[in-house]
Amino acid sequence: MDRFLCIEAFVRVAETQSFAEAARQLRLSKSAVTTRVQQLEEMLGDALFHRTTRAVRLSEMGQAFYRDCSELVARTNEIVDQMREVRGTPSGTLRVHAAIGFMLGHSASLLRQFQDRYPEIRLDVVLDDAVIDPVKQGFDVALQIFKPVSDELISRRVFPVRRTFCASPEYLQQHGMPEHPRDLAGHRLGLFSGHATRDRWTFHKAGEEAVTLELKPHLMSSSVHLLRDYAYEHAGIVCLPTLVAAEGIRGGRLQIVLPEFVLSSFWLSAVYARTQRGAFKPRLFIESLVARFAGDEPPWDKPLIEAGLLAPDLLEE
């Protein structure tokens, strides 16, 4: 029995709460993972999991054993990666889950630069706007704008995500420019369906009390790119992150609505497992992202701020 392989299988089952998912992530058969966990249980003399047809839960001993084993597996993998770097370059697969709005149009150059520096690292990037637990779903890093779903996860900020209401000049010429947030109720609206506050929106203006409204959209979507295209079709007023809207604003296809009223901002953050704090490949990837945006406004926001179309200060969510 290879004790480390058995411990690694145990940790992966504990993290995913599934023998089948652990097997998929380890690229083994489910029976192989089951056998490794059973061998570990036989050696320890007690069950590590409570199993039913619907769930896999750690036993009392399993909970105590997991804390040390998760750190052991993470540290072992980190040491192996560091030794590979000493001998040559870091290698292996790095799985990244990322919000679609960030990756499309803004990330290809970042990925190229990372792989130019670390050519032996293979990137497996899945695009999805859902908020996930990267550990349970087998990712090394998740790039997302919402808070981590578990206390076992760490979040590191990469860059701010500002939002603005905007529409095509043709739509505004036909339907008029809103002068106050309350005027939005008289327009066809397209809004992001994943916003934590749902239909409740708060607008801030310097020297005035914040205005909080309930806005009922005519179109809700989990895709900010669909909302942008909806505005391009002169269909209504939409709320977009500036990283999606900036090109259209600079090119004249979109016009900011209510520029003097500011919405709260989010942060695009790299989320990863607490037990992987020192993991080598994820750390290299996250540090390259943070370094790219350190000490400056994102390149899509900077020209809008300089033109006076965006407030330079952040109102964080």
Rank of each mutant, 00 (worst) to 15 (best):
Q174C: 07
H175K: 08
H175G: 02
G176F: 00
M177G: 07
M177P: 02
M177T: 15
P178L: 04
P178M: 01
E179W: 09
H180W: 02
H180L: 04
H180V: 04
H180D: 06
R182S: 14
R182T: 13
D183N: 09
D183F: 01
L184V: 13
A185S: 15
G186K: 08
R188Q: 11
R188G: 06
R188D: 10
R188V: 12
L189R: 05
G190P: 02
G190D: 00
G190E: 01
F192M: 06
F192R: 00
S193K: 12
S193Q: 14
G194F: 05
H195V: 13
H195M: 13
A196P: 15
A196K: 14
T197E: 14
D199N: 14
R200F: 04
W201E: 03
W201C: 00
W201V: 07
T202A: 07
T202C: 06
H204M: 00
K205R: 13
E208M: 10
E208S: 09
E209N: 09
E209V: 02
E209S: 10
A210S: 10
A210R: 05
V211M: 03
T212M: 05
L213K: 01
L213D: 00
L213H: 05
L215K: 02
L215T: 03
K216C: 09
K216H: 13
K216V: 14
H218V: 07
H218C: 06
M220A: 14
S221E: 01
S221A: 05
S222F: 10
S222M: 07
S222C: 09
V224S: 08
H225S: 03
H225N: 07
L226G: 02
L226W: 00
L227D: 00
L227C: 04
L227S: 01
R228P: 05
R228H: 03
R228N: 06
D229V: 01
D229T: 12
D229P: 01
Y230C: 03
Y230K: 02
Y230G: 00
A231R: 06
Y232Q: 02
E233N: 08
E233Q: 14
H234A: 09
G236E: 00
G236D: 01
V238E: 11
P241Q: 02
P241Y: 05
T242G: 08
T242A: 08
V244S: 13
V244Y: 12
V244D: 12
V244L: 12
A245F: 13
A245L: 14
A245E: 12
A245K: 10
A246D: 05
E247P: 10
E247G: 14
G248N: 12
G248S: 15
I249A: 01
I249S: 05
R250C: 12
G251D: 15
G251H: 15
G252T: 11
G252K: 11
R253D: 13
R253Q: 14
L254W: 09
V257W: 01
V257M: 03
L258S: 01
L258M: 06
L258F: 00
L258V: 03
P259Y: 09
